[in-house]
């Protein structure tokens, strides 16, 4: 599958397995429907794009992230349909993809069993409910950055469960109060139900507007206030 994915995702570009890309995953896939992945490529300069994918998932690519005015850091939870390599790739400005990956064993069905909220039947009552908070990131006061965590209620249906068509968040954008885009995520159905994202944006704004859109065209919006105490940007 590596050959296939590499040809599709990195066509023609230089690809390098790079220890500067840190992929942190647990040693066990305790829940194959909610598998945490943290990617930290901040040791690389000028990261333009970040991909998170699992080679042997039926929907391999989970996230395509453009850290526009954000650091090369991204955390989320994905589904695993079987034992697979989980990988992260960071594209730097010189056109090189920097890769990290690890094998993880997993029970089957992360993508092909119905989500919990479908079984409970309450997904529609909570659709799009958003939670979030901001924190100061890092200890260096000269380089202020802000960590944002946001969670949304969404069934994230993969389309691989009988009689439940694909229905998932497809994008999430973070904007500053002046409307400037800070971060943009393209999201696939292999991201876990009730998605959670952690991003680190540069500087400190008075607030952060998060706007997400799903494959039915529904839009969900929320505003995260700046962390306290607010320091000037």
């Amino acid at each position: 599958m590596w050959t296939y994915h590499a040809a599709r995702l990195f066509a023609g570009a230089e690809v390098r397995f790079d220890p500067l890309v840190r992929l942190e995953i647990p040693m066990i896939a305790e829940n194959q429907r909610v598998f945490p992945v943290t990617l930290d490529a901040r040791a690389l300069a000028d990261v333009r794009r970040i991909l998170i994918f699992a080679d042997l998932n039926p929907i391999p690519l989970a996230l395509d992230y453009a850290p526009l005015r954000a650091q090369a850091f991204l955390a989320t939870r994905i589904k695993l349909d079987q034992r697979t390599p989980v990988r992260a790739a960071a594209l730097t400005g010189d056109g090189t993809w920097h890769l990290a990956g690890q094998w993880i064993d997993a029970a089957g069905g992360g993508c092909s069993a119905p989500p919990v909220s479908r079984v409970k039947g309450d997904w529609a009552q909570h659709l799009g409910e958003m939670r979030g908070r901001a924190w100061p990131e890092g200890e260096d006061p000269r380089r202020s950055a802000t960590r944002l965590r946001v969670t949304l209620r969404h069934p994230m249906d993969t389309g691989l469960v009988e009689n439940i068509p694909a229905y998932n968040l497809e994008s999430l954008v973070v904007r500053a109060p002046d409307g400037a885009e800070l971060a943009r995520l393209a999201i696939a159905g292999s991201v876990a139900e009730d998605p959670a994202f952690t991003l680190v944006v540069e500087g400190r704004d008075a607030s952060y507007t998060v706007k997400a859109r799903d494959t039915s065209g529904l839009e969900f919006e929320g505003t995260i206030p700046a962390p306290h105490p607010v320091t000037a940007r």
Binding site: M27, E30, P36, E129, R131, G132, R133, A196
Partner: peptide, 24 residues
């Protein structure tokens, strides 16, 4: 210990977030 800590994170984290992260 590390193994069980990581399992426990999977067991408890989403519910703790639901409780502790402010609704937007």
């Amino acid at each position: 210990a590390r193994y069980e800590l990581q399992r426990s994170v999977a067991h408890f984290y989403p519910a703790l977030e639901e409780r502790l992260l402010p609704a937007l």
